[in-house]
Structure formats: structure tokens, C-alpha cells
Simulated assay, not measured.
Amino acid sequence: MKQHKETSGGPTDPGRLVGSDRVLAVLRELARYPGGVGLDELTRVIGSPKPTVHRALGALRRAGLADQDDRSRYVLGDEFLRMAFAHHEARPDHVRVRPVLEALAHRFGETAHYAVLDGREVVYRAKVDPPTGAVRLTSTIGGRNPAHTTAVGKLLLARRLTSPAEVERWIGDPGADGAPGSDAALERRTPRSLCTTAGLFRELALTRERGYGVDDQENETGVNCLAVPLYLTSPSTPSGAVSVSALAYRTPLSLLVDALDEIRELLGPLGEPHS
């Protein structure tokens, strides 16, 4: 499952980064370089003067949020990692959903995710790999993918976009590439991705009817997925969706669909709406 890339592909406008904004921009950029990044490269990407970036790094280092390795390359600091992991482990949704993900990963020998909808993307809040035979997927906790190419995204969109006009408006949402209402606004991740208003509307209608979402190698070739809703914060509105992401040659989509009742049983009350 591909992880959606950040949009900061080039230098940031230095006029928009002042004070704490610049420090935060440096911190965010460091997260894109788990192997470390040099000051010159970081300066180029941030688009600010080298002394300014160096001062921001100094502030982050004093707070324990950044560090330098033995090659003098900058990396995220141990204190930042401690805070991030401690916060994630303590989140109520993570605590409640992890046993479900572990049960699904164990049962199918594939990766299980919990994700929520955020605008035009899904964000992965939790992930559990199977105990054996795991094949590393590129999805990460906190990572993003386009909603229209994922099972969890289509499942959650199906409740919000119930007419062709609503689908068209969503596709043409400000910030998307392409003109408002243009099918070109939808990214084609694989040849199977649904990238037209008509195609996405039909898929969302079918998703509403059957009550689960599928990704038939639409986000990443060779990987399929089935998603069902999860009710953590509301008795009637899903807080997100749980999915089983599988290698198509090993666990065909038809096998996951045939096991739908078992998947819902593993979710227990969290997978059932109630009044």
C-alpha cells in the first residue's frame, strides 16, 4: 500500500516562514529523512538562509527534538520520538482498536489497518502486521493515501457523497489539481484506479449497498483490500474503518469477501451501529 507523499517537494517560500513557523518547518522536514540530512540540503529544501536554518536546528536540539549523528547529519531527536510514541500508544482509539487489528492480522496472515478520512485522503491511525510471513507494505502510522483509491476511503466517502453532483464537487474541491469538477483532479495510482465522476459515483453507491469497501489493486498493484466501518465515538456514524490489506496472489479479494461475516465477528460491538 503506497504512502501518499508530502506536498513539500521544493523550496518553501521564505517569506512565509518566520520565527516559530520556520522552526516547525525544519522539524517537519527532518521527519522526511530518517537516515539524516545535511545542513546544505535542508537549507535548499526549506528555502531560508543557512544561518537561519542553523538557528532553528539549534533550538530543536536544545529541546531534544533534533540531534546530529556521527556524520554530522541532522535527525529527529530521541525526545521527539519518545513523545510521539507515548502519545500514540495512549490514544483511546489506538488502545481500543489494536486487539481487533491483531486478531485480523493473525487470522488472515496479512496486514490490518485502522484509518480515518481527512478531506480527500485517509490517514492511518494504527497498523498491525501478521506474526509470520509478513511482507512489508509502505503504509505507515500517520501516513496518507488518496481516499478514492482505498477501500477505507471509499467506504467512508460513500456515506458523504450520495449523488453525482456531490461526487463532482468533492473531486473539484479547492486545492486539487485540475479545474473544479474536472476528473483530472483524481490521481491515478494504478491502471485500475477510479478517476472519473461516473466511475467513482457507481462504486460509492455499490459500497453503500453492500456495507463494505474494496480496493482491487487500485492503490498499489498486487495489493488488494477490504474495509468495514468501526464505531468508536458514535453509535451511528463510523469514526473510521478497519481494513485487511493483502497480497493479491496470496489472499485474493474474493477470499476476503467470502470471510466478511468472520471479519465483522472479530470486530465485535465496535463494528456494529446501534441506537
Results as ranks from 00 to 15, higher is better:
179 A>D: 10
69 D>H: 07
216 D>N: 08
12 T>L: 15
106 H>W: 06
113 H>Y: 15
248 A>F: 00
199 G>K: 11
135 V>F: 13
232 L>I: 04
207 T>C: 14
219 N>H: 14
99 P>M: 06
226 L>Y: 10
34 P>V: 02
213 G>L: 01
33 Y>W: 15
253 L>E: 05
74 Y>P: 02
108 F>G: 09
89 E>Q: 14
174 P>D: 03
71 R>M: 05
202 R>C: 10
61 R>T: 15
100 V>C: 12
191 P>M: 05
2 K>D: 13
264 R>T: 12
236 S>T: 13
264 R>Q: 13
268 G>K: 00
272 E>V: 15
240 G>Y: 12
148 H>L: 04
43 T>E: 01
252 P>K: 01
92 P>T: 08
207 T>K: 07
38 G>L: 04
227 A>S: 14
7 T>A: 11
141 I>T: 12
167 V>F: 01
220 E>Q: 14
159 R>K: 10
128 V>L: 09
11 P>C: 00
33 Y>N: 13
255 L>C: 12
39 L>Q: 14
108 F>N: 09
33 Y>F: 15
1 M>E: 11
211 G>C: 07
200 L>K: 03
104 L>R: 06
23 V>E: 11
145 N>D: 13
204 L>W: 03
244 V>W: 09
26 V>G: 11
27 L>Q: 06
28 R>V: 07
258 D>T: 10
257 V>A: 04
120 R>C: 05
109 G>V: 08
122 V>D: 11
49 P>N: 00
101 L>M: 04
219 N>K: 05
3 Q>V: 15
116 V>M: 10
8 S>H: 06
211 G>M: 10
262 E>C: 06
62 R>A: 14
175 G>H: 02
139 S>M: 08
232 L>D: 00
142 G>Y: 03
64 G>Q: 05
158 A>G: 06
233 T>Y: 02
76 L>Q: 05
236 S>V: 13
87 H>C: 02
130 P>V: 01
72 S>V: 01
228 V>D: 03
94 H>K: 09
196 T>F: 01
17 L>G: 12
17 L>D: 00
186 L>M: 15
8 S>V: 07
13 D>I: 05
42 L>K: 09
130 P>Q: 04
174 P>A: 01
133 G>T: 09
262 E>G: 15
122 V>W: 08
263 I>H: 13
58 G>Q: 12
17 L>W: 09
275 S>W: 12
217 Q>H: 07
103 A>Q: 12
77 G>E: 08
7 T>N: 10
66 A>G: 04
259 A>S: 14
244 V>A: 02
49 P>Y: 00
61 R>M: 12
208 R>H: 09
94 H>Y: 01
10 G>Y: 06
134 A>G: 07
216 D>K: 01
44 R>G: 10
39 L>H: 04
104 L>S: 07
147 A>N: 03
157 L>E: 09
232 L>R: 05
144 R>A: 06
153 G>M: 09
169 R>D: 09
56 A>Y: 10
56 A>K: 04
133 G>W: 02
43 T>M: 04
107 R>F: 00
205 A>D: 13
156 L>H: 07
203 E>Y: 03
34 P>G: 02
120 R>E: 10
248 A>V: 03
164 P>Q: 10
30 L>W: 01
257 V>Y: 02
237 T>F: 05
136 R>H: 06
54 H>E: 05
